[in-house]
């Protein structure tokens, strides 16, 4: 359980750091985050989604293999 808390904590920190970066790069006259800076944030969102999905998949695989190893 303690481990899980630490994992979630690290993930939150990671997301937070992204949010901080995003705020400093937003120009004043934008009309929303996703439309600013040549819409590069759309690409960021897509890539981060793919990455999250990929890691979720690998994480699950790891857990399943761990279960198999315990048998």
């Amino acid at each position: 359980m303690n481990k899980l808390k630490r994992i979630i904590g690290v993930m939150l920190l990671a997301i937070l750091s992204v949010a901080v970066q995003a705020q400093s790069a937003v120009p004043e006259d934008n009309t929303g985050l996703m439309r600013s800076n040549g819409k590069i944030y759309v690409v960021v969102a897509v890539v981060v989604t793919i990455l999250l999905g990929l890691f979720f998949y690998v994480f699950n695989l790891d857990r399943k293999i761990s279960k198999l190893e315990k048998k």
């Binding site: 690290v10 990671a14 992204v18 995003a22 590069i40 960021v44 890539v47 890691f55 761990s66």
Partner: peptide, 25 residues
């Protein structure tokens, strides 16, 4: 739980950083 998770988390954090800040730098 997954085995030896610290470096796996490190890889996750580093890649999230790469895939977000990599586009903004």
């Amino acid at each position: 739980m997954i085995r030896q998770s610290w470096w796996k988390l490190l890889s996750f954090v580093l890649l999230v950083y790469t895939c977000s800040y990599g586009f903004l730098v």
